[in-house]
Design a protein around this nucleic acid. Structure first.
Lengths: 119, 119
DNA sequence: TAAACACATGAACAAGTGTTCATATGAAAG
DNA sequence: CTTTCATATGAACACTTGTTCATGTGTTTA
C-alpha cells in the first residue's frame, strides 16, 4: 500500500497549480532534445572555433585547419557533424571544398553567449 | 629539410591576408573555452529542462524532480553544475532549497535556440 | 535529543565524444 | 590513365559525462 509518489516533497514550495502550469508551457520532449542537441554543437571548442572563423569569412577546409592549428582529420570529422546539424554548408570550388555558415542563427547564438561570457 | 607546414594547401581559397585578418579578430583561447563551456550547459537535456522550468517559476529541488520525472539525485548533481556555471542560484526557505535563474542571458540564449529549432 | 525530511555528495559504471592514425575517395593536372 | 592534392572516413583509444546507489549533512519537527 506504500504506492505514493516518492519524489514529491510534503509541503512543496511551488504548489500544484504552479507545477501544472509549468507542465503546460513545456515544449514536448522531442523539441527539448533537439534544443539540447543544437547547443551541443556549440559546446565543443573545436566546433566553436570553426564556426567563429566562418563568421568572418567562408574558407576551405585546409585553411580552417591551418588557422586553428588542428589536424585536417579532426576538422573534417567536426565539419561532418556541423553539416548534419545544418549549421554549415559547403560547395566545391576546384580542388577545394569551401565551407560557410548555413544559418544566421549561428551568429546570434554565439553573440548571446559571448555577451554572457564577457559579462 | 622537409620542414614546411603540412597543413597548408598549395593554393588556398582564402588567401594569407584573410587568414591573418581572421586571426586578429579571434577571441583568445580562454574566451573560446569559456564560451564552449557555457553552451555545454545547454547541451544536456536534463539541464535544459531544469532551466526551462525555472524560466516559468522558481521552485524547490523536489518540485523540479517531480515535474521532470527525474531522480532527486540526478537533479541535484546537475544543479551543482549549473550553479558552478553561475546560471542558477538558490536560497534556503524552511526545509527547502529554492532554485531560480541567476542570469537573464539564459532566457535569450534558449530563445535563440528555440527559434532555430522551430524554424 | 531523536526522528523525519530535503538535499548534497562520493564512488562506480555505462554510454557518449573527440582525437589520432591509417587509408579511402574523388577531382584535377600531367 | 596515373599521380597528386584536398578532403572524407573507419577503427581504435583515451577521456569525459550523466546516472544510479548508498550514504552524508543540515534543518526542522516531535
Amino acid at each position: 500500500m506504500e504506492e505514493k509518489n516518492e519524489l514529491m516533497c510534503d509541503e512543496p514550495f511551488a504548489h500544484r497549480d504552479v507545477v501544472g502550469r509549468v507542465r503546460d508551457v513545456m515544449p514536448d520532449d522531442d523539441t527539448l532534445y533537439e534544443l539540447a542537441d543544437l547547443f551541443k554543437m556549440f559546446g565543443d571548442s573545436t566546433r566553436m572555433k570553426i564556426m567563429f572563423v566562418l563568421m568572418e569569412s567562408e574558407m576551405c577546409v585546409c585553411d580552417i585547419a591551418e588557422l586553428l592549428g588542428i589536424s585536417q582529420s579532426a576538422i573534417s570529422h567536426q565539419l561532418r557533424i556541423l553539416k548534419q546539424a545544418k549549421l554549415i554548408s559547403s560547395r566545391r570550388e576546384g580542388k577545394n571544398i569551401i565551407c560557410f555558415l548555413a544559418d544566421d542563427h549561428v551568429r546570434s547564438i554565439i553573440d548571446q553567449g559571448l555577451s554572457h561570457v564577457l559579462e
